[in-house]
Amino acid sequence: MASIRKRGQRYHVQVRRIGFATRTKSFTKRSDATEWARLIEGQIDRQELAPCRKTLKDITLADLVTRYRDEVVPTKRGGDVETIVLNSFLRHSICRKVLSELRPSDFAAYRDERLKDRKADGSPKITAKSLKRQLAPVNNMFRHAAVEWEIPLRGNPMDGLKLRVVDQRRERRLRDGEGARLVTAAKKTRNRYVLPIILFAIETAMRRGEILSLRWRDIDLERGSATILETKNGYKRVIPLTDDAMSILTTIRPDDAKPIDLAFPITPVALRQSWDRLTERAKLQDLHFHDLRHEAVSRLFELGLTVPEVASISGHRTLAQLMRYSHANQDTVRAKLSGGSRTKLTGGQEITRIDAPPRRELTD
């Protein structure tokens, strides 16, 4: 804040702001003093003036990361993952640097070091895409520190950091026979909720986190709908349930279920471990749980739903995002190009549009 005092025949101006050096100047006219004070305050607000080195010398990058991890990350969805990422970042020597000495070149060196790190077989330990994802919380931290905490940073040292990311979008769908193998392996899993979750994911195109956070109060079996209150993009959506989806929910619902009870009471870690074991048992190569969402969205288009209808179910906000999850069945496309409604195998056997297991086997 600026203060103007008259001393003798001159007006003495002093501009003080936490984190910046005090600026003083004298003028013969008060109007000139006021104009200069506004100019300096505007430069400080726009981060055009260098911050006070003394303040930044007292704060290390580790101090900033720790505060962000403890105060901000717990309020975010997916905070557990960010906490793990930041804890790993804190172990690196870059975090011992004080903010006054931190430069973009430090993060460039960090990037190069991480990307050069190799496994025993010579393959990279981390890809540019994964590193960019890991550095996202750190980048957000600098922006938060400047705006919310008013720490006088001279810009964001990560601005302009180049990470050459190769587009590795997944187009994995269930191939012939894989659906049946997946169900067979899931039936041998000790946790009774794994198979229903897999089938429910294919029926609804819901994300893993959305399925695991679904409560009975969010489900309306009479109207055949499920409401997702917390989504990845922050928008609530209502999903219409198919007959098979409602059958799954009816089968697993206990008689004493309470509205606040989870429909699928299993932790993300337990589901991940079960998934890894059953895909290995079924000999399914490179199949992720999230690929079931790709499969479900693609099937919705194959059923003839329009783009707005599919988007209302999947929750995608733009067409570009939606198209990343839609991969046409090549047999179906080939059949249409050939003028047929079905594709024939050798011997006349038909390829059905959906390689899905019998839903009623849940009651076996």
Results as ranks from 00 to 15, higher is better:
A180K: 05
P124C: 12
P74F: 05
R181C: 05
F107M: 11
T363D: 11
V73P: 01
A245L: 09
N191I: 02
T75M: 11
T267R: 10
A50H: 02
I219L: 15
T279P: 00
T28E: 12
R173I: 03
P51W: 01
A33E: 08
A186C: 05
D32A: 12
V147D: 14
M246C: 04
R299W: 01
L287G: 00
R53M: 08
C95P: 00
R143G: 15
I239E: 13
G19W: 00
R7G: 02
V269K: 07
R133F: 05
D63R: 00
L90Y: 00
T83P: 00
G339K: 12
I351V: 14
G348E: 10
L115M: 06
G160H: 08
L337I: 14
M141H: 09
L153Y: 05
E41K: 07
I151Q: 02
R175Y: 01
G234S: 11
D244S: 14
H12M: 09
R237V: 12
R215A: 10
T306K: 13
R217K: 15
M246H: 00
V147C: 07
F142T: 01
I151V: 10
C52I: 00
K54S: 11
D255T: 05
T352N: 11
R69I: 01
H144L: 13
H288A: 09
A311M: 15
L322V: 02
P104M: 13
T66E: 12
L303T: 11
E350F: 06
Y11W: 15
M246Y: 01
D32Y: 09
E101A: 14
R181P: 03
Q43N: 14
T75H: 15
R175N: 07
A282H: 04
T204K: 13
Q168V: 04
A335Y: 04
D176T: 09
R53I: 09
Y11T: 08
V81H: 08
P259F: 12
D286N: 06
L99S: 01
L39Y: 08
I202E: 04
Y325D: 01
P157K: 09
R170F: 04
T184D: 13
I228S: 11
V85E: 04
R277S: 09
E295T: 06
V81G: 03
R91S: 05
D276R: 06
L229Q: 15
L212M: 10
T189F: 00
V166F: 02
I219M: 10
P51G: 03
R91P: 00
R38M: 06
R359A: 08
A335L: 10
S31A: 13
E148L: 10
T189N: 14
R111K: 15
F289E: 03
R277M: 05
T227V: 15
N140K: 14
A37V: 04
V73N: 03
T242M: 05
E222Q: 06
K129Q: 08
A109S: 15
N329G: 06
I202M: 11
D331H: 12
G315F: 12
F200H: 06
R111F: 09
L64D: 03
D117H: 14
G160E: 10
I198T: 08
D331V: 03
G79H: 03
R91H: 02
D255H: 03
R30A: 01
R281K: 08
K132L: 05
L64F: 01
T55V: 13
V297P: 01
V147Q: 09
D364K: 15
G315L: 10
L163H: 06
A335T: 08
Q134G: 00
S274E: 03
A226S: 13
A226I: 12
T22A: 11
F89T: 07
R172I: 03
V15K: 09
